[in-house]
Design a binder for these strands. Sequence first.
DNA 1: TTAACCATGTAATCTGTTACATGATTCA
DNA 2: TGAATCATGTAACAGATTACATGGTTAA
Lengths: 180, 180
Amino acid sequence: MNTLSYGLLSILTVAPCSGYDLMLKIHLFWQAKHSQIYPLLAELEKDGHVQFELVEQTNKPDKKVYSITKTGEAAVRQWLSEPTADPVTRDEFTLKLYCIWISDPDTAKKLLADRTAMYEAKLTKLENRMEQLRVIVGGDLGAITLHSPYFGAYTLVQRGIMYTRTNIEWCGWVTRTWLS
Amino acid sequence: MNTLSYGLLSILTVAPCSGYDLMLKIHLFWQAKHSQIYPLLAELEKDGHVQFELVEQTNKPDKKVYSITKTGEAAVRQWLSEPTADPVTRDEFTLKLYCIWISDPDTAKKLLADRTAMYEAKLTKLENRMEQLRVIVGGDLGAITLHSPYFGAYTLVQRGIMYTRTNIEWCGWVTRTWLS
DNA sequence: TTAACCATGTAATCTGTTACATGATTCA
DNA sequence: TGAATCATGTAACAGATTACATGGTTAA
């Protein structure tokens, strides 16, 4: 079982989902395309970690709604107690910044402006997601406890907001100090 | 040419390096093992983007010191003006947090404590690196300009420090609010 | 004496992306 | 009419990790 498989199980602890749902939901935390998710779901099913129900739909294609099994939950609990791998980030921007000194100020300005715009768009998305969560939990995010199914989503969206604001601040610092 | 190849060229704009040096230097911005770097260097050399000089050493194995060519610099300049890919982060911690609600408080405490320790170690490393940079540029980091070879390193280490402090703050918030 | 560092490379495997394949519905 | 969404899958390829391979020096 690889990390993405555990990630899929992790999302299924909150609610049953189709492969398509999982693809959309995991997107905030892990980049994975449907072509990677569907085969892993089939394997998880084969190994008894998940089960699915065929749901027929009108106006939309039929779907397989997956839910986590007792075996799957036990695997998740085991995984939670094991050491966690360090995060891996791959950001072309950092590589470009490292050699931006050989370029002209206009190229540098564009690089920073594009990155600022990206973070601002990201911040808007995260704030919308936070608002959605507020509605889902019934208005009061402060009422969320460690044992609420939305504990992870709430704290992680908050983390994303803090992280994105820090990045916008950093972009501003660079722009003000060297590119104005 | 893939992103890592440009990353290697990017580092070589600042100073000639061996493959081993490049592995150590790129580590702060991009995760890559030597087994990926050596073949790419051979390809870059074949395509005329870099050249190397065999440096014989006593007490240490001989090494190939690579430097960027005119062709390589032109490729970098072209790359700098092209659109930049969005960052990709893969962090097992976020997947675990998403389903920590099904676990017990002790597991949650350990998960957060480990992550806090990781960020604190990272912060120390970054602060040391910043101090190194201060020495390299002759004492005054404020004197760095857009056209200094250390512009990228300086601004990126600062970014890392800000980012890591934000993460430590977030870990503290979660711990204080739910795990004390 | 054992681990870490320096230094370079290849082979096997796993992970992740892009492309191929299908097809109805809905909105602009 | 064309793009986006919902929905699932496979195949080919690219990117990244782990393991295999070698071997001297240095510090705990």
